[in-house]
Amino acid sequence: MSNNIKIPSVALIPQGNIESYLRMINTYPMLSAEEEKALGEKLYYHDDVDAARQLILSHLRFVAHVARGYSGYGLPQADLIQEGNIGLMKAVRRFNPEMGVRLVSFAVHWIKAEIHEYVLKNWRIVKVATTKAQRKLFFNLRKSKQRLGWFSHDEVGIVADELGVTRKDVLEMESRMSAQDMSFDIDNDDDDNSIVAPALYLEDSSSDFSKSIENDNWENDATDKLHDALSQLDQRSQDIIKARWLDVDDSKSTLQELATKYNVSAERVRQLEKNALQKLRVAIEA
């Protein structure tokens, strides 16, 4: 189906007074089963954009009816309707009139899916439900709480049995739903008993990020300079420095061990080591 369906934006995006919007969408005529099937066939087989427009406009009142059922979440009704309208458009795009069902029965799942997604993203700053099972529990639990209020121990068991989940799942979701968002910014309230905003205590004063980066850069630079300086030494001096200072796998070699290896005196090895260290120091500090 083409995406260029010309529908008045005010019909899909409620603006201003909600009551005015509801009165407007109620002016679009409802379709009989025969009319709906004929329009569905035009859209499905011939990609008729005007047929899609009529199908959408005739079902906007149904979207508003579904959205009204989610008013208990404290979210703007206009936004709920707008999300539901998106679901309606997706349903119309996929509607097959040969399935033998009315569009309203097919579209309700798409409408609710979009509204559910909006509620879960906006009801709390921190998501209360992320998995499919948690989302199902979230909305089922909302319905149960409207009937039971705050849960007692026995009521938790009843709800768990009704929804086919564990008591732990019910208690955890109830806890998430009952949690309140806290402002990150500083509260201007001068009351000494007011809750301290997270902005005042979330900073880790024991860690200096800029200093860590500076130290890492210094260590990397020093390592590179040491590598370059070592490459400028003769092979024997390199071996002496590595054996005396850099090898980590083996124990530090003694002057006598190196003297025996190179067939020189221990004093000569000490002099070579001293000269090599001096050259390394000059190269690194340059």
Rank of each mutant, 00 (worst) to 15 (best):
S32M: 09
A33T: 12
E36T: 06
E36A: 05
K37I: 13
K37R: 15
K37D: 13
K37C: 15
A38M: 15
L39Y: 11
K42G: 02
K42D: 01
L43D: 04
L43C: 07
Y44V: 00
Y44M: 00
Y44L: 07
D47K: 03
D48S: 05
V49E: 14
D50C: 00
D50Y: 12
D50T: 12
D50P: 03
A51L: 12
I56C: 02
I56H: 03
R61Y: 11
F62I: 04
A64E: 00
V66S: 11
V66F: 03
S71T: 12
S71M: 08
G72H: 08
G72Y: 06
Y73R: 05
G74T: 00
L75A: 04
L75R: 00
P76S: 03
P76D: 00
Q77W: 06
A78P: 07
A78R: 04
A78E: 02
D79H: 08
L80P: 01
I81E: 04
Q82D: 10
Q82C: 04
Q82E: 09
Q82L: 05
N85K: 00
I86D: 00
G87Y: 01
G87D: 02
L88A: 00
M89A: 09
A91F: 05
V92M: 06
R94C: 08
N96Y: 03
P97G: 11
P97Q: 14
E98Y: 14
M99L: 08
G100L: 04
G100A: 05
G100N: 06
V101F: 06
V101C: 03
R102M: 12
L103R: 02
F106N: 06
F106L: 10
A107I: 00
W110I: 01
W110Y: 13
I111T: 05
I111Y: 07
I115W: 06
E117V: 02
Y118T: 02
Y118K: 08
V119M: 03
K121H: 09
I125A: 12
K127N: 11
V128K: 14
V128S: 14
T130V: 13
T131F: 11
K132L: 13
Q134M: 03
R135N: 08
R135Q: 15
L137G: 00
L137W: 05
F139S: 09
N140D: 10
N140A: 09
R142E: 11
K143M: 07
S144W: 10
S144R: 10
Q146F: 13
Q146P: 06
L148T: 01
G149C: 07
W150Q: 15
F151T: 08
S152T: 14
S152F: 01
H153L: 10
E155Y: 00
E155S: 07
V156P: 01
V156M: 08
G157Q: 11
I158W: 10
I158F: 12
I158N: 12
V159L: 10
D161I: 02
G164F: 03
V165K: 15
T166F: 09
R167Y: 15
R167I: 13
K168A: 15
V170T: 11
L171M: 15
E172Y: 06
M173E: 07
E174Q: 13
E174W: 07
R176V: 01
R176F: 12
S178A: 15
